[in-house]
Nucleic acid binder design. Structure first.
Length: 274
DNA sequence: CAGAATACCTGCGGGC
DNA sequence: TGCCCGCAGGTATTCT
């Protein structure tokens, strides 16, 4: 489900209900997501307030005076705010109840998501401290990409999805951005021209911004924190369109696998440079 | 060291 | 109807 636009959509959806609210109760139904859930730390949070809700890459941070809850939605995770008690379903692993009677519920069928705890600066947490730049800041530009990629032989698509280079770009938006920039996804990262890198940066920023505006993509089951789908999937040009005609040139779109992820591209619009 | 493969899970749709 | 297969938005860990 969640790449940067979906995580950002989630943040914006839950922020008004939980920021500055005091934690009243925490229920952990399933002790393990990707890693064990730090139950003790969560119980100690009762009576503490969420000072701030932040996003770093695909992580969400619930900041309190005691420490920070680090959340990752994995592949199928979802956060929603309920304003009345609703019976928990099979995959509703964690509930956090606030004094305003809002209930923050974490649901994750595949359990690739995570809830972690840190007493220290969350940016220094092992999972966060080596993350790459935020794609929607000025630090993400073609000079930066050139520096990062100039020695990399891996496919450009694999490099863009490496969260240590740039955060938030996942399989959908990476596939789309490469199409927009006219770059073949298997091209070795070091061989992407300077002009192409510029186009790629523009494409990535553009697609992420547009997706956020539309509330993210609902490919299969993404629902935002209000239980509504995102509407960006209607605008996807290549992702999910293998064997269909390219919307630009009518060539049949191809599907290949790169770094164990499905990749769709147009062999005419995204040629391999001679 | 870089890069590739593996592992973690459940659910869904399609083919038989 | 039911079973088996492949596929799904991610990424730390282990391997070569």
């Amino acid at each position: 489900m969640p790449e940067l636009p979906e995580v950002e959509t989630t943040l914006r959806g839950i922020q008004p209900f939980i920021e500055n609210q005091t934690i009243q109760k925490v229920i952990v139904r399933r002790p393990c997501l990707r890693w064990p859930i730090p139950k003790t730390n969560l119980q100690q949070l009762i009576g503490y307030r969420i000072n701030q809700l932040q996003r770093r890459g695909k992580y969400l941070l619930l900041c309190t005076d005691l420490g920070t809850v680090i959340l990752h939605l994995g592949m199928s995770g979802r956060l929603q705010v309920l304003n009345k008690p609703v019976k928990a379903d099979k995959h509703d692993h964690i509930d956090i109840l606030f004094n305003n009677n809002c209930l923050l519920r974490f649901t994750d069928p595949r359990r690739f998501g995570a809830l972690l705890w840190t007493n220290n600066n969350p940016q220094e947490h092992p999972l966060l401290k080596n993350l790459g730049v935020e794609p929607l800041t000025r630090h993400f530009n073609h000079h930066y990409l050139h520096t990062q990629l100039k020695h990399k032989k891996i496919a450009i698509k694999a490099a863009l999805m490496d969260q240590h280079i740039v955060v938030g770009v996942g399989n959908i938006y990476c596939t789309e951005a490469l199409f927009m920039a006219g770059i073949h996804p298997t091209l070795p990262a070091k061989n992407v021209s300077s002009l192409q890198l510029k186009q790629l940066v523009v494409a990535i920023k553009n697609i992420l911004r547009r997706a956020i505006k539309k509330g993210g993509s609902s490919i299969k089951d993404f629902l935002n924190s209000l239980g509504k789908p995102g509407y960006f999937s209607q605008e996807l040009q290549v992702y999910g369109r293998a064997d269909l005609p390219c919307l630009q040139c009518q060539s049949i779109l191809q599907m290949i696998t790169i770094a164990q992820r499905s990749t769709i591209y147009c062999s005419r619009c995204q040629p391999i440079p001679a």
